[in-house]
Design a protein around this nucleic acid. Structure first.
Lengths: 232, 232
DNA sequence: GTACCTATTTATAATGC
DNA sequence: TGCATTATAAATAGGTA
């Protein structure tokens, strides 16, 4: 559809390539908009030119251009995945550039259940946060990880204390020539013994989690398999 | 471009709407493919018809159709976000339906750094996992959460043991009429006392994390702020 | 629902400014 | 680089099978 027919292969001349990109991009975006209006469809288009310029289209009829390179506004979402039997909540950070959220909304509507737990922070853009708030986010992560460190260290410390106190108790008994049952409080019912194999194992496994700051009102939902936990 | 000019507004007749959707979808997909080839561009298109049928296009030149409703193959990614000073790794579960990954790859190329840490499991599709493997994934999550439960319970248990052993020791001392210093092992240097205020606080805060199963080789990277941790 | 048909509209390649 | 023109190729509306 031009003065001459062209073969569909890479345009080697950079200028021509850019011009063609620009024209055809406009054409596709227009067609996408028409499609959504005419056919009540949902369409998302994301594209980069060979020079890195970014364009997007998201139904209904929103189109935007970013300078190159763009800084996507990012949003947090939580997802309950049916393949994981809704047991697993996974935090998702998605660029609002692409209408994934809308697409997933449609998907979950089709399967008749909700995949999404929208976080309270959903409305916010990370890029829009003030510096202090970003520092706060960072500190949340730091604080939480430190807290994990504290709790594991504590466990080890208490184990050592129990061991030492038991030894002190035994010494005292021996000094007195007693042969009593171990007193309540010294029985290790975890099966791990004093040197805490369970503790070390736990430490390794706990790091197998990825940690993400989240909302208090969602706490504990990932565990226990509440299959009825759905929105909408 | 047809026998007659049409106004761009919703086609009320469902059959005509469907036919038009099908024709125009084909047209857009073709144009997208041409654009990627001609202009060396990167394009991702996702669309749902009004009947819920799903179509996608991802450069380079891959097009697919899913039955309605589709089950997206899902992939895990880890993201290092510059807005969080690369301190925060966030696990992302993304539908491979949309070429977000490719788009982000392009983005990070543009900003000259890497946002992504591709997980080893990246190549796998959740939907493609065998039932046993899915069970395994579930169990991973379960096991890890139980492990957290164990470690916190353990801390409390050990605190109680220390308290009881201390009491037993004191009783023994008193029976002997001794007035010694407390033995090593009984000093609580956490400042929390026997009833473990620190433990309870930690429990509440630990739940403020979202847990996601991940790869062992990435362990600990979220903490400590290794800013040089980049691929590519 | 799909596949072909064709008159017509629309997109755009080549060109000039 | 960007904008307008225009001849032409391509897409498609409305129809039929």
């Amino acid at each position: 559809m031009g003065r001459g027919k062209i073969e569909i292969k890479r345009i080697e001349n950079a200028t021509n390539r850019q011009v063609t990109y620009s024209k055809r991009r406009t054409g596709i975006m227009k067609k996408a908009r028409e499609l959504t209006v005419l056919c009540d469809a949902q369409v998302a288009i994301i594209m980069f030119s060979s020079t890195g310029k970014y364009h997007e289209f998201c139904s209904p009829s929103t189109e935007s251009v970013s300078p190159s390179p763009p800084l996507f506004p990012l949003r947090f979402y939580d997802l309950l995945h049916p393949a994981l039997n809704y047991n697993c909540i996974i935090s998702i950070l998605i660029a609002s550039c692409c209408s994934i959220k809308g697409i997933f909304d449609r998907y979950q509507q089709a399967i008749g259940t909700s995949l999404w737990i929208e976080q309270q922070r959903m409305g916010e853009d990370l890029d829009g946060l003030e510096f202090d708030e970003l520092r706060g986010l960072e500190q949340n992560v730091d604080a939480a990880l430190k807290e994990y460190h504290v709790i594991t260290t504590q466990t080890e410390t208490y184990k050592k204390k129990v061991k030492h106190s038991y030894e002190a108790y035994k010494t005292l008994q021996q000094e007195l020539g007693l042969r009593e049952e171990p007193a309540f409080g010294f029985v290790d019912n975890t099966g791990g013994g004093w040197d805490g194999g369970a503790g070390a194992g736990a430490a390794a496994d706990m790091f197998a989690f990825r940690v993400v700051p989240s909302q208090p009102n969602l706490h504990g939902m990932a565990y226990g398999g509440n299959h009825d936990l759905r929105l909408g």
